[in-house]
Computed example of a mutant assay.
Amino acid sequence: MTRIAASTAVNRYYLARMEAAKGNDRLSSREGASEETGIDRKRMQRIEIGTLNPYPEEVMLMADAYHAPELMNFYCTSACPIGQKMMPKAELQELDRLAVKFLNALEGIKGTDRALLSIAADGKLTADELPAMEKLLEAVKAVSAVGCELQIFVEKHGGNSGG
């Protein structure tokens, strides 16, 4: 058996491929994965050892072939500077864990509607309103992150229902 470099053993793209290989033996080798995704084998090797960031289109191909939608969020929040700034990090989690996170996020957003109305009343954000707006924003981000995780869960376990 080929030795796996330490950087590869923890690489998210490699781990997703190995997980997918449990259901599709062709994905157990880079050659088979290359044929399944259309990504050059040598390029895939560099992606999996972490010396090369994949293109967004390649991440989409891997996510589809490996049935691993979480790879898209991983890419956006780790390799894309826009995604790092704008996207919440989301992980593939079990539904019971997501339900708890969702209810907790909803609890954190209670009362923010009134705070937002108070801040927006004059159409301006003043310095004294900024802490309340930042608190509101953090609560909204928590709900958004759970929303992303629910989307990943549905894509992973709910089939290809679209939307």
Rank of each mutant, 00 (worst) to 15 (best):
L52K: 03
M72A: 10
A132K: 15
R114P: 01
G147H: 10
G147N: 15
K141D: 13
S29A: 09
M62Y: 00
E94L: 07
N104V: 09
Y75V: 02
T51D: 09
E107I: 08
M86S: 12
K124F: 09
E107K: 14
E48Y: 05
D128Q: 01
I49V: 15
S29F: 07
L106D: 11
Y55W: 01
N73A: 12
A65V: 06
K42E: 07
L95C: 10
L71V: 02
P88W: 12
P54K: 03
P88V: 11
T77P: 08
S118N: 10
V146M: 05
L103Y: 14
L137W: 09
M60E: 12
E36V: 13
L61G: 08
E134S: 03
L117A: 15
V59I: 05
L52Y: 00
V140C: 08
T51F: 04
R46T: 07
I82G: 01
M62V: 03
L71A: 09
C80E: 05
I82N: 01
P131Y: 08
P131E: 13
E107N: 14
M44C: 05
A65R: 10
L117Y: 15
Y75N: 03
S34L: 02
E36Q: 14
E138M: 12
M44N: 02
I119F: 04
L116K: 06
K42N: 11
L92Q: 07
E36I: 13
E35R: 11
A132L: 14
S28I: 08
Y75C: 03
R41T: 05
L116V: 11
D122N: 14
A142S: 09
I109N: 08
F102R: 14
S78W: 05
R46K: 10
E129K: 13
Q84R: 15
Q45D: 11
P69D: 06
A63L: 06
M86A: 12
T51C: 03
L95S: 12
P131V: 07
S28F: 10
V100C: 03
S118P: 02
K135T: 10
V143L: 14
A127V: 14
S78P: 04
D113W: 11
G123P: 08
G123A: 12
K141Q: 14
A33E: 09
S29K: 07
Q45F: 12
N73C: 13
A105S: 11
S34I: 00
R43M: 05
M87F: 14
S28N: 07
I82Y: 06
K141A: 13
G108L: 03
A121G: 12
E70H: 11
V140G: 01
R30F: 15
C148Y: 15
E129P: 10
R46D: 02
G32E: 02
V140Q: 11
D64Q: 10
C80Q: 06
I47N: 03
